[in-house]
Every structure is written in structure tokens, then in C-alpha cells.
Amino acid sequence: MFYLTLVICLVASILITPMVKKLAFKIGATDKPNQRKVHQKIMPRLGGLAIYLSFIIGLLILRPESTYAIPIVLGSIIIVITGILDDMIELSAKIKFIAQIAAALIVVMYGGIQVEFINLPFGGVVEFGYLSIPLTVIWIVGVTNAINLIDGLDGLAAGVSSIALITIAGMAIIMGDGFVVAVASIVLASTLGFLVYNFHPAKIFMGDTGALFLGYIISVLSLLGFKNVALISFVVPVIILGVPISDTFFAIIRRIVNKKPLSAPDKSHLHHCLLRLGYTHRQTVLIIYAMAAFFGLTAVIFSQAKVWGSFVVVAVLLLMIEVFAEKIGLMGHNHRPLLKLYREIRYSTVKDR
């Protein structure tokens, strides 16, 4: 029944997406080109509605048993309604932020999904106490927006989310968490069905309806899979979501360095930088897919490593991310501290010879 449900979700998404496309044009949920957009013509958004409807169909068929199911669905309803309205009339950032907090609070307060403590690698426990609720809400809202930020090219957010869902489902299988496996697999099948129409050249965008929903569900599933565990294991979901999290992190750094508001839009995200380097639309998306897969594989290796081995993995990973970000100009062409340090050391070495 499990595999049949996944096939049904995949087919449902493929069949529903063209209907959602027609609906998007009827209600004005379209994306017009501007100086920040890559596309050159008016495109229907709202495609995330097809992903969500297929997801609901999968839940109704499979009915995975868990006390978390109803709170997750209730929170998702708020997220999807917010996304639909934003795709139609472009809500203010404040309204979207409030809606995301409301959705997060439902799964935290009603569902009991909280990171309450962390076991330290060398003994001892860190109890979060009253901070457990705000920390969990920050995680959910942060990941939700991180997925939304990378939704800048055809198939990019859908593909990166799919890779994250595969990794989360795989890790859940290892840990024996049937509920996370079921929900992640249903969302994955629904997203892959939509990707048929969304990969370059896209016929429809997922819009905020899809980006916010995928960010929300991935953030919650990653918490379910890795909450109340060792500090080392808690890093796993951060690595799994390495692409959207690092892109968001460097966007914040970039705006601080350039003395711009954190909410200010720009064309210096990961995909913009790769496009400027001369890669085609499709090549850029595939490169970022490969990066997401690399992060997913690293997360699996990290989870199986010993304490000191895991520290080495994180250190090497952080160094690689920083060097790559400086190479492609993710923080701006003038902000390259490690590369400048390397050149100075190399110059001094050559001079001493």
C-alpha cells in the first residue's frame, strides 16, 4: 500500500498541475518579469497547490499514525493559504512572517514538536527550558524562508527540496521512524510529479504556495527526525539543508557588509552568481542539485562518524563552503578574506625563496 500511495501521489501531481496552471491565470496568480527575475514572459505561479493537494491525497490514503499528523496539517493549511494569497496579490513580508509564526506555533504548542534538550558529545546535557519554544519556531520559520529564497530558477527549489526529502527519509529509515518516512516520501512523490512541469523550461512556477509549504514541511520533518538527540546529531538537518541555509546566511552577511536592509532583494544569490560565471540556466540548476546531493551524502557520513571524526567533517565542510562562496562572489567581489589570506601567504612564501 505504501508504494502504491506514492505512485498515486506522483500521478495525482502530474494530473493536477495543468488544472492549477489554468486556475492561476484565472485568478491572476502570475509572475511578471522584472529586473530581478530570470524569466522573460508572464508565468503562472501557484504550482505549489498541486504539490499540496497531492500530499493531502497521500495522507488520506496512507493515514500514517502519529499525534503529530493533525498539527502538521493544520499548520500547513495556514502556510498554503498564505502562499495562495501571496501568489495572487503579493502580501507584505510582515503578514507572511506572522502567518509562518502562527503555523510554527501550532506544531510546537499543539503538536508538542520542540527541541527541549541536547546531549553534549563529551558528557552533560543542555536543557533549553523556556527557550525551546522560540528556538523551534526560529528553526521552522528560518528553513521555510530559506527554501523560499532559493526559488529563483526553473526546478531549483523543487529539486533541492526533493534531495533534502530523500535524505531525511533515508535517515528516518535508519532510525526506524515510520511516520517521517511516510510523510517525507509522500511530499517527495508529489514534488517530483510537479517537477515534470517545473524543470527548465518551466511551464509553471511553484510560487510562494509551494516554496513556503516545502520549507515548512521539511523544517518540521527534520525536527521530528533529529530532536532531543546528541549535539552531533542535531547538526545533521543543518547539513542536509546546507544549500538553502548557506545561501541565506551569505545573503545576510552580504547585506550587512553592504549596509542594506536584511529584507532588501538582490541578484547575488547562489544561482545568480553561477549564471554570471557563464553557466546556462539548466547547468546552474544541475550544479546546485549536485551540491544538495553532496550535502545530503555528507550528512549521512557525518551521522555515522565518531565524535572527533564528525568535528573534522564539519570543519572541512565549513572551509569548503567559505572558499566556494568567495570564489563565486556570494558575499560580493570585494569580500574574500580567506582567498586574500591565501594569496598573501603564497606571495610571502614565493618572496622568501
Rank of each mutant, 00 (worst) to 15 (best):
I288C: 02
G111Q: 03
N145D: 12
S233P: 00
V257N: 09
E127I: 11
I186G: 00
G176H: 13
D154E: 08
I163K: 07
L10T: 02
G278R: 03
T349R: 14
S219T: 05
G112N: 09
I217A: 04
I174A: 13
Q304K: 15
N119G: 10
A12P: 03
A172D: 08
F179A: 07
F199T: 01
G332C: 15
F234T: 06
K32S: 06
P244E: 07
D151A: 11
F213T: 08
V285F: 01
L270N: 00
S132Y: 03
S246D: 04
V181H: 07
S263D: 14
L10V: 12
V323L: 15
L223P: 00
L330C: 05
L105G: 00
G123M: 06
P64I: 07
I84A: 05
G83Y: 01
I345W: 11
V20S: 07
E322G: 01
L188D: 00
V126F: 15
K306C: 09
L131E: 08
G152L: 09
V108F: 12
Q114I: 08
V196K: 06
F199Q: 03
E90K: 15
A293I: 12
L231P: 02
F122I: 13
R255S: 11
F226K: 01
S66Y: 13
G129Y: 10
V238R: 05
A251E: 01
A264N: 12
I113S: 06
F249H: 02
L286R: 03
